[in-house]
């Protein structure tokens, strides 16, 4: 009886959540058409961009438990690859964007080899170091990247003959990217691969003893996560049209990681909620000037004190090795 009741409840709530998702989808589709200013559309665009970055890191840090503080590096590699290819060679956006993702992924896998053997904090340190190395290379390889002068005039993307120029068009593009990333990551988390990644996160040794190919699954998580970061980076470069190394600092990596941690490790909806929160809050408080970042920090600290497992994280506390 109890079980039956539980089932009915579950199906009811799943129907409710489906309706909720439908409404959310409609709202998101309608954003550029309801007469809001381009400023509001931009806030939605930025939020979706961080949602995408957060989701991609969630695959690596949330599901597979490999906490990375170098995600901005892959995001930066994607941005620079795509910007350089379109500026110097005039390649179309679809190609450069894909190349950005692949480049980020290749370098990610290259990093994965030596970093693979490291656990917990040590792995995090390696990613942190990698992030700094990438930033310094971008800064100092002036012949290729123009170093601190940055790359101005990155062209607007043209996709299937349609030029992405208006705020609305940019918004739809990132919406599509975010939905694809969400679909892929949520499918993975519900698949055998996702279970294997969670097993690795909970206890690598036990997972290996149970026959999980740790090497393979870590590579999958790392490769996909950095691929998506590269794609978002490519989008960012063509959206803001001017990039320089100051966009891809440690601060950026830590912001992306805080999306995952605040939302709850491994919880995709949590990441989305956290991104809405962390991007919207400083914007809304703009009038407070210097107090803004103070209150922002306070909110973060309070959130982590009240819900150490993250906004939507599971009750079980994360083990820190």
């Amino acid at each position: 009886m109890q079980v039956l009741g539980g089932n009915r409840k579950a199906s009811l709530s799943s129907r409710a959540s489906r309706i909720l998702f439908g409404i959310l989808g409609l709202v998101l589709l309608a954003v550029p058409y309801v007469g809001v200013s381009s400023y509001v559309v931009r806030m939605f665009t930025l939020t979706l961009m961080y949602i995408s970055l957060g989701l991609s890191l969630n695959l690596l840090s949330g599901l597979a438990g490999q906490v990375s503080l170098g995600h901005a590096a892959f995001y930066g590699i994607g941005a620079y690859t795509s910007a350089l290819l379109s500026l110097r060679l005039g390649l179309p956006f679809m190609l450069t964007c894909l190349a950005g993702g692949i480049m980020a992924s290749l370098l990610g896998l290259l990093l994965c080899f030596p970093a693979m053997k490291l656990q917990g904090t040590y792995f995090t340190f390696v990613t942190l170091g990698f992030g700094e190395i990438v930033r310094l290379i971008i800064l100092n390889w002036a012949k290729l990247t123009r170093g601190p002068m940055g790359l101005p005039g990155i062209p607007q993307p043209v996709i299937l003959g349609i030029r992405i120029a208006s705020d609305g068009a940019y918004y739809y593009l990132i919406l599509v990217i975010a939905v694809i990333i969400y679909a892929v990551v949520s499918n993975i988390s519900n698949s055998a691969t996702g279970r294997a990644l969670v097993a690795i996160r909970e206890d690598t040794l036990v997972a290996e003893a149970m026959g999980v190919n740790v090497f393979k699954y870590k590579m999958i998580a790392f490769g996909l996560s950095t691929f998506f970061a590269g794609i978002v980076g490519a989008y960012f470069a063509h959206y803001i049209s001017f990039i320089d190394p100051s966009n891809f600092t440690f601060d950026e990596s830590s912001l992306i990681l805080s999306l995952v941690v605040l939302g709850g490790m491994g919880n995709l909806k949590g990441t989305i909620l956290a991104a809405c929160f962390l991007i919207a809050v400083p914007e809304v408080m703009r009038g407070l000037l210097a107090y803004r970042m103070l209150i922002y920090g306070l909110i973060l600290v309070l959130a982590m004190m009240i819900r150490p497992q993250g906004l939507l994280g599971s009750q079980k506390r994360m083990q820190v090795s």
């Binding site: 200013s37 400023y39 930025l46 966009n247």
Partner: peptide
């Protein structure tokens, strides 16, 4: 830059 463009918009 991102903050700057937010304000600009």
């Amino acid at each position: 830059q991102k903050e700057g463009v937010n304000i600009a918009q």
